[in-house]
Write a protein that binds this DNA or RNA. Structure first.
Lengths: 201, 201
DNA sequence: CCCCGAAGTCAATAGGCGTTGACATGTCCG
DNA sequence: CGGACATGTCAACGCCTATTGACTTCGGGG
Protein backbone atom coordinates (compact mmCIF):
# COMPACT_ATOMS: atom_id res chain seq x y z
CA UNK A 1 0.00 0.00 0.00
CA UNK A 2 2.79 2.35 0.83
CA UNK A 3 5.75 2.93 -1.43
CA UNK A 4 7.64 4.29 1.53
CA UNK A 5 10.48 2.03 2.48
CA UNK A 6 10.52 0.64 5.97
CA UNK A 7 12.10 2.80 8.65
CA UNK A 8 15.79 2.30 9.27
CA UNK A 9 16.41 -0.04 12.16
CA UNK A 10 19.46 -2.20 12.65
CA UNK A 11 18.44 -5.82 12.65
CA UNK A 12 19.36 -7.21 16.01
CA UNK A 13 21.83 -10.01 16.41
CA UNK A 14 20.17 -13.41 16.72
CA UNK A 15 18.90 -13.85 20.26
CA UNK A 16 18.81 -16.95 22.34
CA UNK A 17 15.32 -18.20 22.95
CA UNK A 18 13.82 -15.61 25.22
CA UNK A 19 10.13 -14.82 25.22
CA UNK A 20 10.43 -11.54 27.04
CA UNK A 21 13.20 -10.23 24.83
CA UNK A 22 11.45 -11.05 21.57
CA UNK A 23 8.25 -9.58 22.86
CA UNK A 24 10.11 -6.39 23.64
CA UNK A 25 11.81 -6.42 20.26
CA UNK A 26 8.49 -6.71 18.47
CA UNK A 27 7.04 -3.91 20.55
CA UNK A 28 9.99 -1.65 19.83
CA UNK A 29 9.81 -2.24 16.10
CA UNK A 30 6.07 -1.74 16.21
CA UNK A 31 6.39 1.63 17.94
CA UNK A 32 8.76 2.81 15.26
CA UNK A 33 6.74 1.53 12.32
CA UNK A 34 3.40 2.74 13.64
CA UNK A 35 4.86 6.16 14.36
CA UNK A 36 6.31 6.57 10.89
CA UNK A 37 3.73 4.84 8.75
CA UNK A 38 0.55 4.92 10.78
CA UNK A 39 -1.64 1.98 11.61
CA UNK A 40 -2.97 1.36 8.13
CA UNK A 41 0.29 1.45 6.23
CA UNK A 42 2.34 -0.41 8.79
CA UNK A 43 2.82 -4.05 7.80
CA UNK A 44 3.16 -6.81 10.37
CA UNK A 45 5.66 -8.67 8.21
CA UNK A 46 7.97 -5.68 8.13
CA UNK A 47 7.64 -5.12 11.84
CA UNK A 48 8.47 -8.75 12.46
CA UNK A 49 11.41 -8.61 10.08
CA UNK A 50 12.86 -5.59 11.86
CA UNK A 51 12.41 -7.34 15.16
CA UNK A 52 14.16 -10.36 13.71
CA UNK A 53 11.27 -12.73 14.30
CA UNK A 54 8.54 -14.49 12.39
CA UNK A 55 5.16 -12.87 11.84
CA UNK A 56 3.36 -15.64 13.64
CA UNK A 57 4.96 -14.56 16.90
CA UNK A 58 3.05 -11.33 16.75
CA UNK A 59 -0.11 -13.35 17.12
CA UNK A 60 1.36 -15.49 19.87
CA UNK A 61 2.54 -12.56 21.96
CA UNK A 62 0.00 -9.89 21.21
CA UNK A 63 -2.98 -11.51 19.60
CA UNK A 64 -3.18 -9.41 16.48
CA UNK A 65 -2.34 -6.16 14.77
CA UNK A 66 -4.79 -4.01 16.65
CA UNK A 67 -3.78 -5.36 20.03
CA UNK A 68 -0.15 -4.77 19.15
CA UNK A 69 -0.99 -1.23 18.20
CA UNK A 70 -2.75 -0.54 21.45
CA UNK A 71 0.16 -1.97 23.39
CA UNK A 72 2.65 0.12 21.43
CA UNK A 73 0.55 3.21 21.95
CA UNK A 74 0.39 2.60 25.69
CA UNK A 75 4.12 2.02 25.85
CA UNK A 76 4.72 5.33 24.12
CA UNK A 77 2.90 7.24 26.83
CA UNK A 78 4.51 5.92 29.94
CA UNK A 79 6.44 8.99 31.01
CA UNK A 80 4.42 11.83 32.44
CA UNK A 81 6.40 15.03 32.16
CA UNK A 82 3.67 17.51 32.94
CA UNK A 83 3.96 17.69 36.73
CA UNK A 84 7.45 19.10 36.59
CA UNK A 85 6.37 22.29 34.82
CA UNK A 86 6.37 25.54 36.76
CA UNK A 87 3.12 27.42 36.35
CA UNK A 88 4.83 30.78 36.60
CA UNK A 89 7.06 30.21 33.62
CA UNK A 90 5.01 27.54 31.88
CA UNK A 91 3.81 29.63 28.98
CA UNK A 92 7.19 30.97 27.94
CA UNK A 93 8.99 27.71 28.56
CA UNK A 94 6.49 25.90 26.44
CA UNK A 95 6.75 28.51 23.71
CA UNK A 96 10.50 28.23 23.68
CA UNK A 97 10.34 24.49 23.51
CA UNK A 98 7.93 24.69 20.60
CA UNK A 99 10.08 27.19 18.78
CA UNK A 100 12.67 24.47 18.89
CA UNK A 101 16.26 24.13 19.89
CA UNK A 102 19.19 22.44 18.18
CA UNK A 103 19.10 19.75 20.83
CA UNK A 104 15.40 19.16 20.75
CA UNK A 105 13.94 16.15 22.42
CA UNK A 106 13.96 13.52 19.70
CA UNK A 107 11.98 11.09 21.77
CA UNK A 108 9.15 13.48 22.39
CA UNK A 109 8.83 14.19 18.68
CA UNK A 110 8.74 10.52 17.92
CA UNK A 111 6.07 9.79 20.48
CA UNK A 112 4.01 12.64 19.25
CA UNK A 113 4.24 11.52 15.66
CA UNK A 114 2.78 8.28 16.87
CA UNK A 115 -0.08 10.08 18.55
CA UNK A 116 -0.83 12.20 15.53
CA UNK A 117 -0.85 9.34 13.08
CA UNK A 118 -3.07 7.37 15.40
CA UNK A 119 -5.47 10.26 15.72
CA UNK A 120 -5.89 10.78 12.01
CA UNK A 121 -6.69 7.23 11.01
CA UNK A 122 -10.35 6.28 11.31
CA UNK A 123 -9.30 2.82 12.42
CA UNK A 124 -7.35 3.96 15.42
CA UNK A 125 -8.99 7.23 16.37
CA UNK A 126 -11.65 5.49 18.50
CA UNK A 127 -8.94 3.71 20.44
CA UNK A 128 -7.32 7.00 21.19
CA UNK A 129 -10.25 8.60 22.89
CA UNK A 130 -9.79 6.70 26.13
CA UNK A 131 -6.03 6.98 26.13
CA UNK A 132 -6.01 10.67 25.43
CA UNK A 133 -8.61 11.13 28.13
CA UNK A 134 -6.63 9.23 30.75
CA UNK A 135 -3.04 10.10 30.03
CA UNK A 136 -3.26 13.45 28.37
CA UNK A 137 -6.41 15.40 29.08
CA UNK A 138 -6.92 14.29 32.66
CA UNK A 139 -3.39 15.17 33.79
CA UNK A 140 -3.67 18.55 32.15
CA UNK A 141 -7.08 19.05 33.71
CA UNK A 142 -5.99 18.31 37.24
CA UNK A 143 -2.86 20.35 36.72
CA UNK A 144 -4.86 23.34 35.53
CA UNK A 145 -7.48 23.09 38.24
CA UNK A 146 -10.01 25.86 38.80
CA UNK A 147 -13.34 26.39 37.15
CA UNK A 148 -14.14 24.83 33.79
CA UNK A 149 -10.89 22.97 33.94
CA UNK A 150 -12.22 20.45 31.46
CA UNK A 151 -12.89 22.85 28.63
CA UNK A 152 -9.70 24.75 29.34
CA UNK A 153 -7.70 21.54 29.28
CA UNK A 154 -9.27 20.74 25.96
CA UNK A 155 -8.16 24.01 24.46
CA UNK A 156 -4.71 23.73 25.99
CA UNK A 157 -4.24 20.25 24.62
CA UNK A 158 -5.49 21.31 21.21
CA UNK A 159 -3.08 24.22 21.08
CA UNK A 160 -0.26 22.04 22.20
CA UNK A 161 -1.02 19.51 19.50
CA UNK A 162 -1.26 22.19 16.87
CA UNK A 163 2.12 23.64 17.65
CA UNK A 164 3.69 20.25 17.75
CA UNK A 165 2.31 19.52 14.30
CA UNK A 166 3.63 22.81 13.06
CA UNK A 167 6.96 21.97 14.62
CA UNK A 168 6.98 18.64 12.82
CA UNK A 169 6.16 20.22 9.49
CA UNK A 170 8.62 23.07 9.99
CA UNK A 171 11.47 20.73 10.84
CA UNK A 172 14.11 23.25 11.80
CA UNK A 173 14.26 25.47 14.87
CA UNK A 174 13.32 29.13 14.58
CA UNK A 175 15.98 31.79 15.06
CA UNK A 176 16.34 35.54 15.37
CA UNK A 177 13.40 37.88 15.17
CA UNK A 178 11.08 35.30 13.73
CA UNK A 179 11.67 33.19 16.78
CA UNK A 180 11.03 36.11 19.11
CA UNK A 181 7.73 36.92 17.49
CA UNK A 182 6.71 33.29 17.56
CA UNK A 183 7.60 32.85 21.22
CA UNK A 184 5.79 36.01 22.27
CA UNK A 185 2.64 35.04 20.45
CA UNK A 186 2.58 31.54 21.78
CA UNK A 187 3.31 32.77 25.28
CA UNK A 188 0.26 34.98 25.15
CA UNK A 189 -1.86 32.06 24.13
CA UNK A 190 -0.72 29.72 26.85
CA UNK A 191 -0.88 32.43 29.50
CA UNK A 192 -4.47 33.07 28.55
CA UNK A 193 -5.23 29.40 28.93
CA UNK A 194 -3.67 29.16 32.37
CA UNK A 195 -5.80 31.92 33.79
CA UNK A 196 -9.16 31.09 35.24
CA UNK A 197 -12.28 32.39 33.62
CA UNK A 198 -13.29 35.88 34.64
CA UNK A 199 -16.73 37.43 34.90
CA UNK A 200 -19.83 35.50 33.99
CA UNK A 201 -18.50 33.75 30.91
CA UNK B 1 -9.59 -2.40 6.74
CA UNK B 2 -11.84 0.16 8.25
CA UNK B 3 -14.88 -0.72 10.27
CA UNK B 4 -16.19 2.78 9.78
CA UNK B 5 -19.29 2.84 7.66
CA UNK B 6 -19.23 4.95 4.56
CA UNK B 7 -20.26 8.57 5.00
CA UNK B 8 -23.92 9.34 4.49
CA UNK B 9 -24.64 10.57 1.00
CA UNK B 10 -27.98 10.37 -0.72
CA UNK B 11 -27.72 8.15 -3.76
CA UNK B 12 -28.55 10.33 -6.68
CA UNK B 13 -31.46 9.56 -8.92
CA UNK B 14 -30.38 7.62 -12.01
CA UNK B 15 -28.86 10.00 -14.48
CA UNK B 16 -29.17 10.00 -18.18
CA UNK B 17 -25.95 9.07 -19.88
CA UNK B 18 -23.75 12.04 -19.26
CA UNK B 19 -20.02 11.75 -18.98
CA UNK B 20 -19.50 15.12 -17.38
CA UNK B 21 -22.16 14.58 -14.74
CA UNK B 22 -20.93 11.15 -13.70
CA UNK B 23 -17.37 12.39 -13.57
CA UNK B 24 -18.52 15.17 -11.28
CA UNK B 25 -20.50 12.73 -9.16
CA UNK B 26 -17.49 10.49 -8.71
CA UNK B 27 -15.33 13.46 -7.81
CA UNK B 28 -17.84 14.68 -5.26
CA UNK B 29 -18.14 11.32 -3.59
CA UNK B 30 -14.38 10.99 -3.64
CA UNK B 31 -13.88 14.30 -1.90
CA UNK B 32 -16.21 13.24 0.86
CA UNK B 33 -14.73 9.79 1.33
CA UNK B 34 -11.12 10.89 1.20
CA UNK B 35 -11.85 13.63 3.70
CA UNK B 36 -13.52 11.35 6.19
CA UNK B 37 -11.50 8.18 5.77
CA UNK B 38 -8.21 9.32 4.33
CA UNK B 39 -6.51 7.96 1.26
CA UNK B 40 -5.63 4.56 2.66
CA UNK B 41 -9.00 3.67 4.13
CA UNK B 42 -11.14 5.08 1.36
CA UNK B 43 -12.42 2.34 -0.92
CA UNK B 44 -13.04 2.91 -4.60
CA UNK B 45 -16.03 0.60 -4.62
CA UNK B 46 -17.72 2.64 -1.90
CA UNK B 47 -16.97 5.89 -3.64
CA UNK B 48 -18.43 4.53 -6.84
CA UNK B 49 -21.49 3.25 -5.02
CA UNK B 50 -22.14 6.65 -3.46
CA UNK B 51 -21.75 8.23 -6.86
CA UNK B 52 -24.20 5.72 -8.26
CA UNK B 53 -21.81 4.35 -10.82
CA UNK B 54 -19.67 1.30 -11.42
CA UNK B 55 -16.11 1.09 -10.13
CA UNK B 56 -14.72 0.66 -13.60
CA UNK B 57 -15.73 4.19 -14.47
CA UNK B 58 -13.24 5.50 -11.96
CA UNK B 59 -10.53 4.07 -14.13
CA UNK B 60 -12.12 5.36 -17.29
CA UNK B 61 -12.49 8.91 -16.05
CA UNK B 62 -9.55 9.32 -13.73
CA UNK B 63 -7.12 6.54 -14.44
CA UNK B 64 -6.79 5.18 -10.94
CA UNK B 65 -7.09 5.79 -7.22
CA UNK B 66 -4.12 8.07 -6.83
CA UNK B 67 -5.07 10.21 -9.81
CA UNK B 68 -8.58 10.50 -8.42
CA UNK B 69 -7.15 11.56 -5.09
CA UNK B 70 -5.01 14.27 -6.62
CA UNK B 71 -7.95 15.55 -8.61
CA UNK B 72 -10.16 15.56 -5.52
CA UNK B 73 -7.51 17.34 -3.50
CA UNK B 74 -7.13 20.01 -6.15
CA UNK B 75 -10.89 20.40 -6.42
CA UNK B 76 -11.19 20.82 -2.68
CA UNK B 77 -8.92 23.83 -2.75
CA UNK B 78 -10.28 25.59 -5.77
CA UNK B 79 -12.44 28.01 -3.88
CA UNK B 80 -10.42 30.33 -1.74
CA UNK B 81 -12.60 30.38 1.34
CA UNK B 82 -10.29 32.51 3.42
CA UNK B 83 -11.06 35.77 1.65
CA UNK B 84 -14.71 35.44 2.49
CA UNK B 85 -14.08 35.48 6.21
CA UNK B 86 -14.99 38.64 8.01
CA UNK B 87 -12.09 39.81 10.13
CA UNK B 88 -14.46 41.24 12.68
CA UNK B 89 -16.15 37.96 13.44
CA UNK B 90 -13.41 35.62 12.29
CA UNK B 91 -12.28 34.50 15.71
CA UNK B 92 -15.71 33.61 17.04
CA UNK B 93 -16.89 32.06 13.79
CA UNK B 94 -13.80 29.92 13.70
CA UNK B 95 -14.22 28.91 17.33
CA UNK B 96 -17.81 27.91 16.73
CA UNK B 97 -16.85 25.89 13.73
CA UNK B 98 -14.18 24.09 15.70
CA UNK B 99 -16.54 23.38 18.57
CA UNK B 100 -18.68 21.66 15.97
CA UNK B 101 -22.35 21.96 15.31
CA UNK B 102 -25.00 20.36 13.14
CA UNK B 103 -25.30 23.60 11.22
CA UNK B 104 -21.62 24.34 10.91
CA UNK B 105 -20.03 24.81 7.55
CA UNK B 106 -19.77 21.15 6.82
CA UNK B 107 -17.95 21.77 3.59
CA UNK B 108 -15.13 23.74 5.10
CA UNK B 109 -14.56 21.22 7.85
CA UNK B 110 -14.47 18.53 5.23
CA UNK B 111 -11.86 20.30 3.18
CA UNK B 112 -9.51 20.72 6.05
CA UNK B 113 -10.09 17.24 7.29
CA UNK B 114 -9.09 16.27 3.82
CA UNK B 115 -5.93 18.29 4.08
CA UNK B 116 -5.00 16.92 7.46
CA UNK B 117 -5.63 13.32 6.54
CA UNK B 118 -3.66 13.78 3.36
CA UNK B 119 -0.78 15.29 5.30
CA UNK B 120 -0.54 12.46 7.77
CA UNK B 121 -0.57 9.54 5.38
CA UNK B 122 2.84 8.57 4.07
CA UNK B 123 1.28 7.76 0.72
CA UNK B 124 -0.11 11.20 0.11
CA UNK B 125 2.10 13.51 2.14
CA UNK B 126 4.58 14.00 -0.71
CA UNK B 127 1.80 15.31 -2.90
CA UNK B 128 1.04 18.07 -0.45
CA UNK B 129 4.20 20.13 -0.07
CA UNK B 130 3.51 22.59 -2.84
CA UNK B 131 -0.20 22.71 -2.20
CA UNK B 132 0.12 23.62 1.46
CA UNK B 133 2.58 26.38 0.75
CA UNK B 134 0.62 27.92 -2.11
CA UNK B 135 -2.94 27.49 -1.00
CA UNK B 136 -2.68 27.47 2.76
CA UNK B 137 0.22 29.32 4.31
CA UNK B 138 0.57 31.98 1.64
CA UNK B 139 -3.13 32.93 1.66
CA UNK B 140 -3.14 33.15 5.43
CA UNK B 141 -0.02 35.24 5.34
CA UNK B 142 -1.34 37.74 2.84
CA UNK B 143 -4.74 37.75 4.52
CA UNK B 144 -3.18 38.59 7.86
CA UNK B 145 -0.93 41.26 6.43
CA UNK B 146 0.89 43.69 8.66
CA UNK B 147 4.22 43.23 10.36
CA UNK B 148 5.69 39.80 10.95
CA UNK B 149 2.91 38.28 8.90
CA UNK B 150 4.99 35.19 8.33
CA UNK B 151 5.47 34.25 11.96
CA UNK B 152 1.88 35.14 12.79
CA UNK B 153 0.60 33.01 9.93
CA UNK B 154 2.70 30.19 11.27
CA UNK B 155 1.10 30.45 14.70
CA UNK B 156 -2.37 30.82 13.26
CA UNK B 157 -1.98 27.78 11.06
CA UNK B 158 -0.55 25.81 13.95
CA UNK B 159 -3.45 26.68 16.23
CA UNK B 160 -5.87 25.87 13.50
CA UNK B 161 -4.36 22.48 12.90
CA UNK B 162 -4.29 21.75 16.60
CA UNK B 163 -7.96 22.41 17.08
CA UNK B 164 -8.71 20.41 14.00
CA UNK B 165 -6.91 17.40 15.40
CA UNK B 166 -8.62 17.86 18.73
CA UNK B 167 -11.92 17.93 16.88
CA UNK B 168 -11.06 14.72 15.11
CA UNK B 169 -10.16 12.97 18.33
CA UNK B 170 -13.16 14.34 20.17
CA UNK B 171 -15.55 13.19 17.47
CA UNK B 172 -18.74 14.73 18.75
CA UNK B 173 -19.74 18.37 18.88
CA UNK B 174 -19.55 20.23 22.17
CA UNK B 175 -22.72 21.42 23.84
CA UNK B 176 -23.89 23.52 26.74
CA UNK B 177 -21.57 25.32 29.06
CA UNK B 178 -18.56 23.31 28.02
CA UNK B 179 -19.08 24.56 24.51
CA UNK B 180 -19.41 28.16 25.67
CA UNK B 181 -16.19 28.03 27.59
CA UNK B 182 -14.42 26.37 24.70
CA UNK B 183 -15.66 28.93 22.20
CA UNK B 184 -14.72 31.86 24.41
CA UNK B 185 -11.23 30.58 24.97
CA UNK B 186 -10.58 29.82 21.36
CA UNK B 187 -12.00 33.18 20.35
CA UNK B 188 -9.49 34.91 22.58
CA UNK B 189 -6.69 33.00 20.95
CA UNK B 190 -7.65 33.77 17.39
CA UNK B 191 -8.37 37.38 18.21
CA UNK B 192 -4.90 37.69 19.64
CA UNK B 193 -3.44 36.25 16.48
CA UNK B 194 -5.31 38.66 14.23
CA UNK B 195 -3.96 41.73 15.98
CA UNK B 196 -0.70 43.20 14.81
CA UNK B 197 2.28 43.20 17.10
CA UNK B 198 2.36 46.08 19.54
CA UNK B 199 5.29 47.92 20.99
CA UNK B 200 8.80 46.81 20.23
CA UNK B 201 8.08 43.13 20.11
C1' DC C 1 20.40 -38.91 28.92
C1' DC C 2 15.87 -38.07 27.51
C1' DC C 3 11.62 -36.01 27.23
C1' DC C 4 8.19 -32.40 27.35
C1' DG C 5 6.72 -27.93 27.08
C1' DA C 6 7.96 -23.50 25.47
C1' DA C 7 9.77 -20.83 21.56
C1' DG C 8 10.12 -20.37 16.92
C1' DT C 9 9.13 -21.63 11.83
C1' DC C 10 6.51 -22.58 7.80
C1' DA C 11 3.03 -22.82 4.38
C1' DA C 12 -1.65 -22.38 3.43
C1' DT C 13 -6.07 -19.87 3.93
C1' DA C 14 -9.36 -16.31 3.47
C1' DG C 15 -10.70 -11.92 2.48
C1' DG C 16 -10.23 -7.36 0.57
C1' DC C 17 -8.96 -4.13 -2.87
C1' DG C 18 -7.31 -1.92 -7.21
C1' DT C 19 -7.22 -2.99 -11.69
C1' DT C 20 -8.47 -4.81 -16.21
C1' DG C 21 -10.61 -6.10 -20.52
C1' DA C 22 -14.46 -8.04 -22.62
C1' DC C 23 -19.32 -7.22 -23.12
C1' DA C 24 -23.96 -4.63 -23.25
C1' DT C 25 -26.64 -0.53 -24.15
C1' DG C 26 -28.07 3.99 -24.90
C1' DT C 27 -27.68 8.16 -27.83
C1' DC C 28 -26.86 10.80 -31.76
C1' DC C 29 -25.54 11.69 -36.48
C1' DG C 30 -25.74 10.48 -41.32
C1' DC D 1 -33.83 3.97 -39.80
C1' DG D 2 -29.36 2.02 -38.57
C1' DG D 3 -24.87 1.82 -37.51
C1' DA D 4 -21.00 3.69 -34.68
C1' DC D 5 -19.12 5.61 -30.92
C1' DA D 6 -19.49 6.95 -26.26
C1' DT D 7 -21.22 5.46 -21.98
C1' DG D 8 -22.08 2.08 -18.60
C1' DT D 9 -21.88 -3.03 -16.70
C1' DC D 10 -19.94 -7.23 -15.34
C1' DA D 11 -16.98 -10.79 -13.78
C1' DA D 12 -12.59 -12.14 -12.94
C1' DC D 13 -7.63 -11.55 -12.16
C1' DG D 14 -3.61 -10.59 -9.34
C1' DC D 15 -1.58 -8.91 -5.56
C1' DC D 16 -1.15 -7.97 -0.78
C1' DT D 17 -2.07 -8.75 4.04
C1' DA D 18 -3.65 -10.58 8.56
C1' DT D 19 -4.51 -14.69 10.39
C1' DT D 20 -4.25 -19.55 11.50
C1' DG D 21 -2.80 -24.23 12.69
C1' DA D 22 0.36 -27.75 12.13
C1' DC D 23 5.16 -28.69 12.35
C1' DT D 24 10.10 -28.25 14.09
C1' DT D 25 13.63 -27.13 17.32
C1' DC D 26 15.63 -25.60 21.51
C1' DG D 27 16.66 -26.20 26.45
C1' DG D 28 16.12 -27.32 30.99
C1' DG D 29 14.31 -30.59 34.69
C1' DG D 30 13.42 -35.48 36.05
Amino acid sequence: MSDITAPPRPLAAPRKRNAEATRAAILEAAKSHFAVLGYDCAILRDIARDAGVDVALVKRYFGGKEALFVEALRASFLSDALRTWDRATFARDMANMLAGSPHADEDRTHRFQFLLRAATSPNTAPLLNVLVQDRFLEPIRSWLGGADADARARVLAASYIGFLVERLIRGEALVGRERDVFVDRVTVIFDALLSEPVGSI
